[in-house]
Design a protein around this nucleic acid. Structure first.
Lengths: 338, 338
DNA sequence: GCTGGCACTCGTGAGGACAGAGTGCCAGGG
DNA sequence: CCCTGGCACTCTGTCCTCACGAGTGCCAGC
């Protein structure tokens, strides 16, 4: 186990490196932090920390920089979550209140998060599978053409066109609409398939084809849209990456464009509590020099989706974690109210 | 007026510079293009072109690069629109067919355009003000709480919560729904306000307050959403910007994050026909070293929105213009079908 | 009006010297 | 046993200089 002071040295190295973005040497450390020991002692400690793999030197006779393992220790043991200042808290309220619909909530959240953390923000739309059905609407557009509209308790709306195998009367339509709603409203998406499977049986044979078509479209929608949507923002913060940003930025931009990658990234985060993935802990290669801070958010006690930020491993973890947590909580409240 | 050969020299310079991204000299020009004259002659021509402001040299004794004015002349007079190859055309079909809803259409379009042009793609959602109403739906969520759902002919869906001043019965609701739809379905959004203004008068006094609330929410939605939405993609193509991309990329990324800027950018494009804005022709400062190629698209003869790409002024104009035009046409078809 | 020749200008890259920062190690002292 | 000061060593980054080459502008001749 590392002594108390060595941990203190590691903390100091991380803090300085995050601030200056330059390898930090023993002398600078003793000057900027009250460690109470001489540079030589710090050098010994640093040698140990390097042996243990917490720090590394880019080249002989340069200062040290934290490794992923070093950041990991820092996050787990040495750093708390920094609560937001009250101006920041006010900013969250001002920014998120007055959102008119779900798109707006997500859009504002992503901008807010990017602004607070000065990093790339990623916000997942509330999941459909974990949502409940608020309403299913069926509209007749033409004799044999329907529109299916699906509304969730989180305000998300999906619609699909349906070409019916046979004309479908207004009364049958009203009937189907009523029966559908009575069965599925308030239920979780995941349960819908069983709830509707016997519906066609109760219709006249000439309508049965259409009813089946409608139901299969509904189920398809549920499956397809399990593939979640998300929104990202603050990509211009990538230019803050550091002096080597020209090399780093390309794979990161590419990864950010792949929704699949991002969804997997958020998916790997724990359902509750904050998850921090540092550097190579991220499965995706392009993100090997980034850290991801993610957390679930939801209207109630349960997470309906996740949000987070992507930034350089050299980031202000306490501040970032504080901002992410605060935003997630407030978004949860907003969703609960609407 | 410039002689035929001088124009030819300009064309050659533009083509070479776009290809190599390096200042092009007189010798290289005569080697790569059959101009039929010696380097010395080309040098004289280049001196003239430089006097006229079509080309410039980064420093004495380097080759020449086209200026914005040079690109302008190239686009206006020297370059056609390059039609797509048939594999590319097939790619468009494969990629866009099978889109399930409007979000999907726009999403696929943006990815496709980014891929074809290897630049940043921007696609505006079909405008509401120019759209027509397909259906207005009113759902009762609770005794005094309604949901308004607005569906456009381009497949766009907007919804709003409404808190009613007084409980509103199912019959009144059905009544309002029917009257609303009979008045506005098939009409343009811009015309809706006049069409509904006298609606409250025909209701019982106890319902009149709710009806007014619903209508004002509807009108609000129309106004708010005139503020258009758009989607961008292919930002990782910004890394293709050239050797000076580290400096260029930041203002561009920042501009791309400002929806307002992008909307203005697309708004400045002509309603019909392709618009190319080169370098400083763009009002926004951050985009002074980019060119924007934009074109309107629509389900019928009229444009309902615009799409385009943003790239370095040093871009392949004929190819880009060809791709943008082809994609716009095909998206128009898709929208017309749905 | 085109061409070949020539002198001139600069940016670029290689090579070398130098200062500065930082380290590792060691011997001495609390 | 741990800390400290000292010292030699190793790198990197920077600043020269210098030679090279690409490209130009100009001029005289065809």
């Amino acid at each position: 186990m590392l002594s108390e002071r060595r941990l203190e040295v590691l903390r100091a190295i991380v803090q300085d490196y995050v601030g200056t973005e330059e390898p930090v040497g023993s002398k600078a450390l003793t000057e900027r932090h009250k460690l109470g020991v001489s540079p030589a002692t710090v050098r010994n400690d640093m040698a140990v920390l390097e042996d243990e793999g917490f720090i590394a030197q880019p080249h002989t006779s340069a200062g040290r920089i934290p490794t992923d393992k070093g950041y990991r220790l820092f996050v787990d043991k040495l750093a708390g979550v920094k609560p937001l200042s009250s101006p920041e808290r006010r900013a969250i309220h001002n920014f998120l209140d007055g959102a008119v619909d779900l798109d707006d909530v997500v859009g504002r959240t992503v901008r807010l998060l990017a602004q607070l953390t000065r990093q790339v923000a990623v916000v997942q739309y509330p999941s459909l599978t974990r949502s409940t059905v608020r309403h299913v609407e069926l509209l007749s557009l033409a004799a044999a053409r329907l529109m299916l509209v699906l509304i969730t308790d989180t305000g998300r709306v999906e619609q699909r066109m349906i070409d019916c195998p046979a004309p479908f009367g207004e009364t049958s339509l009203a009937d189907l609409r009523a029966r559908l709603n009575s069965r599925v409203v308030g239920r979780r998406f995941a349960d819908v398939p069983q709830l509707v499977q016997d519906l066609p049986d109760s219709f006249e044979s000439e309508d049965r084809g259409t009813v089946s078509t409608v139901l299969s479209t509904l189920l398809e929608t549920l499956v397809e849209e399990t593939e979640e949507r998300l929104m990202i923002g603050g990509t211009s913060n990538l230019t803050r990456f550091g002096h080597d940003f020209p090399v780093m930025i390309r794979p990161v931009l590419e990864a950010l464009e792949e929704q699949v990658v991002l969804l997997k990234l958020l998916g790997e985060a724990k359902d509750s509590g904050m998850t921090v993935r540092i550097g190579h802990e991220n499965a995706h290669e392009g993100l090997n020099s980034t850290s991801v801070v993610a957390v679930g958010y939801g209207s109630g006690d349960e997470a309906v989706a996740k949000l987070g930020v992507v930034g350089p491993t050299r980031m202000d973890y306490p501040g970032t974690m504080g901002a992410v947590r605060a935003v997630a909580r407030y978004v949860g409240q907003i969703l609960a109210e609407s």
